[in-house]
Computed example of a mutant assay.
Amino acid sequence: MRRMHQYVFAAIAAGTSALALAQSSATDEIAKYRQLLADGNPAELWEMRGEELWKTKAGPKQATLEKCDLGKGPGVVKGAYAELPRYFKDTDKVMDLEQRLMHCRMTLQGLTKEEATKRPFGSAGNPSDIEAIVSYVTAESKGMKMAVPMSHPKEKAAYEIGKKIFFHRAGAYDFACATCHSVDGQRIRLQELPNILNKSNAQQAYTTWPAYRVSQGEVRTMQHRLYDCFRQQRFPEPVYGSDLITAMTMFLAKNADGGVYNAPALKR
């Protein structure tokens, strides 16, 4: 009987080792595939279009976005995304990039909220101006370290709210963000699930969004990434540009502090 148990344990150990090896091999191959495509990332097309939109007069006020203050002063884009979300005195609230762009398009260009948030997520034949502008702005922080501020009380409050959302279980599956993203080594099929509570995982995950999704043929922003996560959990659809999404983004961004930003990236 003892020898039989030894055989069983040996078989389990061998099977576990083989599975781990297969997963590691798949992960390595996916990484190589992404590296091969990185030099020709289609996201560059979104970046170029976004820069053009940033500098083009639009809206009732016929103004550009070149005076939009993303936290480093009017018109300063370089390095701005690496320090977002953050508290803005003029609105007395914490804002992420997409929320701030909505504000600038309304105040500088005179767009209504409906116009400023029209088509936040593009599809074939229906490109999104927002995804293009986000691609341009985020690309201007490439190579810089994430340094999300946490000195203002509202920044701290946003982080804590985001943390609560991360651990909140609900929906038809009784899921939380933490269900998939709070344990090392988890995956769905070949898709790795980064542990956001692990600093290196959080840095690697956050600093590679937005990204060009090969499967969708579109650049997807952080707002879209979170929207899709909530959808998969069968949560109610979050409102685009809402404070809830900003709080969630603050939690993720702050956990990635110190990571080198490298996006728009390339995803499956």
Rank of each mutant, 00 (worst) to 15 (best):
Arg2Pro: 02
Val8Gly: 02
Ala13Leu: 11
Leu19Pro: 02
Leu19Lys: 11
Asp28Gly: 14
Glu29Phe: 14
Tyr33Glu: 13
Arg34Met: 08
Gln35Asn: 13
Ala38Asn: 06
Ala43Tyr: 01
Glu44Tyr: 10
Glu47Trp: 07
Met48Asn: 15
Met48Lys: 15
Gly50Asn: 00
Glu51Phe: 04
Glu52Cys: 07
Leu53Trp: 05
Trp54Tyr: 02
Lys55Ala: 12
Gly59Pro: 05
Leu65His: 00
Lys67Phe: 14
Gly73Ile: 02
Val76Glu: 06
Val77Glu: 04
Leu84Met: 10
Thr91Val: 15
Thr91Leu: 10
Asp92Gln: 11
Val94Ile: 04
Leu97Thr: 07
Met102Thr: 05
His103Val: 13
Cys104Glu: 03
Met106Phe: 10
Leu108Arg: 08
Leu111Arg: 01
Thr112Pro: 09
Lys113Cys: 11
Glu115Lys: 15
Glu115Asp: 15
Lys118Ser: 13
Lys118Val: 07
Ser123Glu: 07
Asn126Arg: 12
Pro127Trp: 04
Pro127Cys: 01
Asp129Pro: 09
Ile130Asn: 04
Val137Pro: 00
Thr138Met: 07
Glu140Leu: 09
Gly143Gln: 12
Ser151Trp: 12
Ala157Asn: 08
Glu160Ser: 11
Gly162Leu: 08
Lys164Val: 13
Lys164Asn: 14
Ile165Glu: 14
Arg169Tyr: 06
Ala172Asn: 14
Ala172Glu: 15
Tyr173Lys: 00
Tyr173His: 01
Phe175Ser: 04
Thr179Gly: 10
Cys180Met: 12
His181Cys: 02
His181Ile: 02
Ser182Ile: 07
Asp184Ile: 07
Gly185Asn: 06
Gln186Phe: 09
Leu190His: 08
Leu190Asp: 06
Pro194Tyr: 00
Asn195Leu: 05
Leu197Phe: 06
Tyr206Gly: 12
Thr207Gln: 08
Thr207Glu: 08
Thr208Ala: 12
Ala211Tyr: 03
Ala211Lys: 06
Val214Lys: 07
Ser215Tyr: 11
Gln216Ala: 05
Arg220Pro: 03
Asp228Phe: 08
Gly241Ser: 02
Ser242Ile: 07
Asp243Phe: 03
Ile245Met: 09
Ala247Val: 08
Ala247Glu: 07
Met250Gln: 01
Leu252Val: 15
Leu252Arg: 00
Ala253Leu: 08
Ala253Arg: 00
Asn255Glu: 05
Asn255Ser: 07
Gly259Pro: 01
Ala263Trp: 01
